[in-house]
Design a protein around this nucleic acid. Structure first.
Lengths: 327, 327
DNA sequence: CCTAGCACTCTATTTTCTCGATTGCTAAAT
DNA sequence: ATTTAGCAATCGAGAAAATAGAGTGCTAGG
C-alpha cells in the first residue's frame, strides 16, 4: 500500500516522463511537493524497491516501470474532457451519412491518430445481425460472373466467380434456389445452411451443381471474413523510443501482418489497457483497445503507442468513439 | 563519347555499388579488368569530369552520379530472364479467376515487392470502356439507402445515399428513369449526361428531384475516382540510404499522401525510369513505372527504390506484369 | 599510354577527458 | 521518528585527441 506522498511522487514522475521522455530526478519533484529532494529520494528508493520505478543507470533519475504505469492507470489517472476542436472534427465524420460504418471508424481513427500521434487499428467484421437480403449475379463474360450479396443492414459485397462451362441458365436457376432458401439467414449461418440445405437441393435441379456449389461456398466464406486496417502507422516514427530503425522495422512488420493482427480482437466491452509485456504486440508499446458492436458491424478498435503514452487522452477518445458509433 | 574501357569501368562501378552500397575503389575494378589501379584511377578521373561519377569525399572511392546511372540504364544495362520461381509465384496470381484486376495487380506487386525489396504503387482507374450496366438500390432504413452500380466489365461499386424525407416511391421512380436513360453510357460520360439529360427529366416526374439529383451526382463522381495503393512500404527500411529516421519520415509521408500520389500517373506506354531528380517523389529514389490498360481498368504501376536499384530486374518484372495483364 | 611508388587526405573508430546531473549515505535538525 | 543538508561517488553524454586504413592524385620511369 502506498502513502499519499508516494502516490503523488509516482504520479508526478509518470506525468513528467510521459511529457519529456527523460528520467525524472528528485529535484524536479521536490519543487512540486513541499519537501526536500532528499526526502523525495528516500521515497523514490522505496518505490523502486516495490518495483514501481526504475533507473536507467546508477545515477540517473527514475523512470516508471510497467508496474508503475499499471499502478498509475489503475489508481492515479484522471480523465479529462475532450476539447471542443477534437469533438468537432470527429462529429463531421459521424454526421456524414454517406459513409459506411467501417469508413466512419477508419476516418475517426485517422483523426485520433493525428491528434495523439499514435497508431490505430480497426478490426471489423460484419455483425451477426446481418441477414442475407439478396443475391444477384452479373455475367461479365462466358467464364466469369460477378456475384453481389446484400444484407439487410446495407452491407454490399461482391466477388468474381469462375463458371467456365456452366450455362447461364444453370447459374440463374441456382441463384434462384439460393435466394428462395436462404434469404433472411444470418450471414454466419450461411455456410452451414449452404452445405446442409442447399447442396442436396441444387443437386437435383442443376447439372453442374458441384462446381457451382463450390463457387458459392468460396464466395460466402470469403465475404464473412475479417477486415483489418492500420491507421497512422507513420506516427510510430515520431516517438523517440523508435528512433532506431531496427525497432521500427520490428513493429512495422507486426503492423503489416494482417492475419496476426486479428489476434488483437478484444472480447471485453470495457476500454482495456495492455502495457508492455501485457500485450502480444511488442514489449515497447502499450495497446489500448475496446470492443464495438452495431447491428451492421462489430469488432475492435485499438490505439498503439509507446508505453510512455498519454493514457488519459486515449482512453477518453476511445470511449467517445465507442459511444458515438454504438449510439 | 566513352571508350569501351570507360564504359566497362562505369558499368562495373554501378553494378558493384548497387550490390554493396559502398564507394568503389580503383583496386576492385582493376582486378576485373586487365590493367593497373593507376590506369583505372585515371579513367575514373575522366569519368568524374564528365559528371558520371562522384566522390563522397576527397579520398573516397567512386559512386555513380545520377548522370552515371542514366548512362548505365540507357547504354549498358543488360536485361536478364526472370527466374522460374518468380514466374511461378506470379502465375498463381494471374490464374486466379476469382480476383478482380485491381486485386491481381496489388497481389502481383506484393510479390514483386517481396522479391526485390522495393516499394510499389498501383494507380487504378476504371477504364473508359466500362459502360453502365445497371443501377440498383437497397433501402437500409428510412434515411439511408445503398446504391449499387455495375458496369458491363464487371466492376461493382456501392455507396450509401442519404434520402431523408424522400419517399421510397420517388427514389424508385428516379432509379428507373436513370436506368432507362443512361444504361450503356461509358462511365466517364455519366456525370455530363446526368446533368444535361437526366436532370431536366426527373424534374418533371419527381418531387424531391433536387435532393435526389445531388445524391446521385455525388455517388457517380465518387465512383469514377482514382484509386491508389502502396505496397511493401516497409521495404524502404531495408535500404541503407534510409537508415536515418528523418529520411524515412519524408518518404513515408509522401507515400501516404494519396492525392499527391496520383501525380505518379504515367501516360507513356513504355517502361520508364526516373532517377533521383528526374522524379518528383524524392531525389533519393528512383521510380520505374509504366502504363497499363485493359477493358476493365487502366492506370499506372510503379516501383520505387533507392537510386542504387536493381534496374534490370525491376524493368523485367514490370514488363512481365504489363504483358500478362494486357495479354 | 600504362604503371609502380609515395605522400597526402579524409573517414571511421577507439580512447581519453571533462562536465554536469543525480544518486545514496551520513549526520544533524526538526 | 521523520526530514533535511551536505557531500563523495557514479555514470552518461559529448568534446577532443589519437590511430589505423582505404583510397586518391601526382610524378617519374617503363
Amino acid at each position: 500500500m502506498l502513502t499519499k506522498r508516494q502516490e503523488d511522487i509516482l504520479k508526478l514522475i509518470v506525468i513528467e516522463y510521459i511529457k519529456l521522455a527523460k528520467p525524472v530526478g528528485s529535484k524536479l519533484i521536490c519543487e512540486e511537493l513541499n519537501c526536500s529532494s532528499a526526502t523525495v529520494r528516500n521515497e523514490m528508493m522505496l518505490l523502486e524497491e516495490m518495483g514501481l520505478l526504475e533507473k536507467t543507470h546508477t545515477s540517473s533519475g527514475r523512470v516508471p516501470s510497467e508496474k508503475g504505469y499499471r499502478y498509475y492507470v489503475d489508481n492515479l489517472m484522471e480523465l479529462k474532457e475532450l476539447n471542443g476542436e477534437e469533438v468537432y472534427k470527429l462529429q463531421t465524420v459521424f454526421n456524414n451519412k454517406q459513409l459506411e460504418l467501417s469508413d466512419v471508424l477508419n476516418k475517426s481513427l485517422e483523426i485520433i491518430s493525428d491528434i495523439t500521434s499514435y497508431t490505430s487499428i480497426v478490426l471489423d467484421t460484419k455483425s451477426h445481425d446481418n441477414k442475407l437480403k439478396e443475391i444477384s449475379i452479373v455475367p461479365v463474360n462466358s467464364e466469369i460472373l460477378v456475384v453481389i450479396i446484400v444484407t439487410d443492414q446495407g452491407i454490399v459485397e461482391h466477388k468474381n466467380m469462375e463458371v467456365k462451362g456452366v450455362s447461364l441458365d444453370e447459374v440463374k436457376k441456382t441463384v434462384k434456389l439460393i435466394n428462395d432458401l436462404i434469404v433472411g439467414t444470418p450471414i454466419d449461418e450461411i455456410s452451414a445452411k449452404l452445405e446442409f440445405e442447399i447442396k442436396p437441393v441444387i443437386g437435383k435441379y442443376v447439372k453442374q451443381h458441384e462446381l457451382l456449389y463450390n463457387a458459392f461456398y468460396d464466395v460466402f466464406t470469403d465475404i464473412s471474413s475479417k477486415n483489418v486496417n492500420v491507421v497512422g502507422k507513420n506516427n510510430i516514427l515520431k516517438h523517440q523510443e523508435f528512433s532506431n530503425v531496427s525497432k521500427v522495422k520490428d513493429i512495422f512488420s507486426k503492423l503489416d501482418d494482417k492475419s496476426a493482427l486479428e489476434n488483437i480482437e478484444e472480447k471485453d466491452n470495457n476500454i482495456n489497457i495492455y502495457i508492455g509485456h501485457e500485450n502480444k504486440m511488442s514489449p515497447d508499446v502499450t495497446v489500448i483497445k475496446t470492443n464495438y458492436k452495431t447491428s451492421r458491424d462489430e469488432g475492435t478498435i485499438a490505439i498503439i503507442g509507446p508505453k510512455r503514452m498519454d493514457y488519459d487522452k486515449v482512453v477518453n477518445l476511445l470511449d467517445y468513439i465507442k459511444k458515438q458509433i454504438e449510439g
